[in-house]
Write a protein that binds this DNA or RNA. Structure first.
Lengths: 169, 169
DNA sequence: GAAATATGGTTTATATCGGTATTATTTTAT
DNA sequence: ATAAAATAATACCGATATAAACCATATTTC
């Protein structure tokens, strides 16, 4: 990595000095959040790439594994992945052509499509899940249970703040 | 919004029940982080869109404003935005054709290009910055200074955890 | 000082994603 | 029972992003 976060902090401070009125610490927080996300996303994608997966395809397979009875529709996946249905159609194409997922028309509702894991898809996600969990454990290893709980609380509070200013638009 | 976060928590718990060994709370934390990021990004982009901007173009203009003397190269922007140089080229094209930024060849190093704000670009970012700061203040309004500091600390700790497992690959 | 290497920026090819329109089917309203 | 509205999936298109190849210029190495 070329830069750690201090690089950004300096940039923010430079703006702050010249244009007064900036809520400095909160701007840093937003930027830090953004930065951490990028690192998080990149780290996991790099590991998943070893299996020909990425965050979206991994999560899709995990969802499919977790609901092996219920049968999942593309719309369900769209919700679970926070992705457009358009994109899920494409993802499903990808997963099907990789041989991990099967598409079947639904009997009850003929508009629907039912997605399920193939044997290969099942084997793959069963292999990847424990790897991911180990990774996650390692990532959070330094956090005490209290810290985990506090982080959780703050993230949810942040969510509340965000939803509030969504209404007022 | 169709779903709040509890939707995802239920999905995680469903997997957890069937496949033992999941570090449940940390998985939730990762997923929550991802969810919050999406909301954050979407919220800011929606506001910036009113000015014909998005996170990238906004940040680029802010960086340019903050270094009105130093003159910024595309590479600098690439670092600041955590974006590929390829993408910065495209962004610069966009900003130039919108009339907000000027491109000038550098004298000292003839490989380089120097980017600077036009008068219009300057006016725009001077208008947008205070709007953004107000937004950020509102977003974090419920957080006490202690909470802000604690959030900051936890995010940096998370970063440390991430960088650790980057090395070990 | 010439050759090898590194750097800055762009072009080209490719991936990922969302919006809109479209088609097929189901549900609702009258 | 039929017309209108809603829903599910997709095709098509444009926006945003990266990687790889490339050219021009600087820097390093010998």
């Amino acid at each position: 990595m070329k830069h750690d976060f201090s690089f950004f902090e300096l940039g923010i401070d430079r703006i702050s000095r010249r244009r007064p009125g900036m809520p400095r610490d909160r701007v840093v927080l937003n930027r830090l959040f953004f930065f951490v996300f990028k690192e998080l996303d990149e780290a996991y994608n790099r590991r998943l790439a070893e299996y020909g997966l990425n965050s979206s395809t991994f999560l899709a397979l995990a969802m499919l594994l977790s609901s092996e009875d219920k049968l999942l529709n593309p719309s369900d996946l769209s919700d679970a992945l926070i992705a457009s249905r358009t994109n899920v159609t494409r993802l499903a194409d990808e997963l099907v052509s990789a041989g991990w997922v099967a598409r079947k028309p639904s009997m009850e509702d003929r508009r629907r499509v039912e997605l399920s894991l193939t044997e290969e898809g099942r084997k793959l996600i069963m292999k990847v899940l424990p790897m991911m969990w180990k990774l996650i454990e390692r990532q959070w290893a330094d956090f005490s249970p209290t810290e985990v709980a506090e982080f959780d609380r703050l993230l949810r509070k942040m969510l509340a703040g965000l939803s509030r200013f969504k209404e007022t638009a």
